[in-house]
Computed example of a mutant assay.
Amino acid sequence: MAWRRTARAILLGTICVIAALIGAVLIVIVVQGKRKPDTSGQYVAMGSSFAAGIGLGPHAPGSPLVCMRTTGGYPHLLARDLALSLVDMTCSGSTTDHILDGGQMFLGPQLDAIGPAARLVTITTGGNDIGYIGGLIHASAKVSAIDHALVGKPPPVDPRAFDKVTGNLVRIVKEARRRAPLARIVLASYPPALPPSGSCPALGISDDAAAKARDAADHLAAATRKAARLSDALFVDMNIIGAEHGVCSADPWINGPAPRTGVPFHPNAEGAQAVADAIRASLDRSR
């Protein structure tokens, strides 16, 4: 019948349009990934989504789509405050391995942006190495049934993963220092999502799940602190500085599981500003 032929034609056309759009996006991702980074920046920021400012404003001009990098992340706030030219290499979903060796969706090493002109390098990473935020989102049940079926329950964190984070961070700092001998290098830990003890309705997770996530966050901060000590980098302990600003607090720096704006269990605008302020204060004290 004519209507069946018309329906098939519409379906085929729709499939072709979707395939073309997917192909176009993939081409953009590949082209962006192969682009060589600018190495003239006075300030180079590296790290994961906590630094990239995911969900905090306009897409950072020229940045890879896969990184979900915004102009509301703490690197942009800090660069404006210090009047430094910024090359922001932060990328949502990245690990310490990606900073060192690349491999994230065709992207090269984040370290490749560091040149001799750099006077400041900041690094906030490690959460994706241990599945920290993914575990929180899963525990809050803010994942679909399909995600549960395909991914299943997150495995427990291997204690060796924290040692790997420390080792990789030391390698990152040493390589950054080799490329930019005059740069001040800052390791900033993650602002905590959890209260010092227990849970609360705003978190949407059990006390047991909160305790496990808190333990992972504390160990990640300790791994970062150890790396800073071993590599003689400046350490900004947002895990301590933000202890009273978790999701359960009256003045949270981190979103809960279902925020009206932003991304679950990631910094809000106040949290990004707090990290920028803490790094600035630490730089001022260490002069």
Rank of each mutant, 00 (worst) to 15 (best):
residue 140 S to H: 00
residue 146 I to V: 11
residue 126 G to R: 03
residue 160 R to N: 06
residue 178 R to C: 05
residue 161 A to R: 13
residue 158 D to A: 14
residue 127 G to W: 02
residue 205 I to W: 05
residue 126 G to E: 06
residue 161 A to W: 03
residue 199 S to I: 08
residue 141 A to P: 00
residue 201 P to I: 07
residue 135 G to Q: 01
residue 194 L to I: 06
residue 209 A to K: 14
residue 201 P to M: 09
residue 160 R to M: 09
residue 213 A to C: 09
residue 203 L to N: 05
residue 163 D to A: 11
residue 145 A to F: 02
residue 165 V to C: 10
residue 167 G to F: 11
residue 180 A to M: 11
residue 193 A to P: 02
residue 130 I to G: 04
residue 208 D to F: 10
residue 204 G to W: 02
residue 209 A to I: 12
residue 194 L to A: 10
residue 187 L to A: 10
residue 203 L to P: 02
residue 198 G to F: 06
residue 205 I to G: 04
residue 138 H to E: 01
residue 212 K to R: 15
residue 143 V to F: 00
residue 154 P to S: 13
residue 187 L to M: 12
residue 183 A to Y: 12
residue 127 G to P: 04
residue 179 R to Y: 09
residue 146 I to A: 11
residue 207 D to Y: 06
residue 208 D to S: 15
residue 208 D to G: 12
residue 132 Y to F: 13
residue 169 L to V: 06
residue 153 K to C: 02
residue 141 A to N: 07
residue 184 R to V: 05
residue 201 P to Y: 07
residue 142 K to L: 00
residue 143 V to H: 00
residue 133 I to A: 04
residue 181 P to T: 11
residue 194 L to S: 07
residue 210 A to N: 14
residue 130 I to W: 02
residue 162 F to K: 05
residue 185 I to F: 07
residue 186 V to W: 05
residue 185 I to M: 09
residue 148 H to P: 00
residue 211 A to C: 13
residue 201 P to H: 08
residue 197 S to D: 14
residue 128 N to H: 03
residue 128 N to S: 04
residue 197 S to R: 14
residue 153 K to T: 15
residue 171 R to V: 07
residue 211 A to D: 15
residue 168 N to K: 05
residue 177 R to W: 12
residue 165 V to R: 06
residue 163 D to I: 03
residue 213 A to N: 08
residue 138 H to N: 01
residue 137 I to C: 00
residue 189 S to T: 15
residue 148 H to Y: 03
residue 141 A to T: 03
residue 181 P to E: 13
residue 149 A to D: 02
residue 129 D to I: 02
residue 172 I to S: 14
residue 166 T to G: 11
residue 144 S to N: 01
residue 186 V to N: 07
residue 126 G to V: 03
residue 132 Y to M: 06
residue 190 Y to R: 07
residue 159 P to Y: 12
residue 206 S to G: 14
residue 172 I to V: 15
residue 142 K to D: 00
residue 153 K to F: 09
residue 148 H to S: 07
residue 174 K to S: 15
residue 131 G to Y: 01
residue 178 R to V: 11
residue 156 P to W: 10
residue 178 R to L: 15
residue 205 I to E: 09
residue 198 G to M: 11
residue 191 P to K: 02
residue 206 S to R: 10
residue 202 A to V: 01
residue 173 V to K: 11
residue 154 P to I: 10
residue 126 G to F: 04
residue 182 L to N: 15
residue 204 G to M: 04
residue 213 A to R: 09
residue 192 P to A: 09
residue 147 D to A: 06
residue 177 R to E: 05
residue 192 P to L: 08
residue 168 N to R: 11
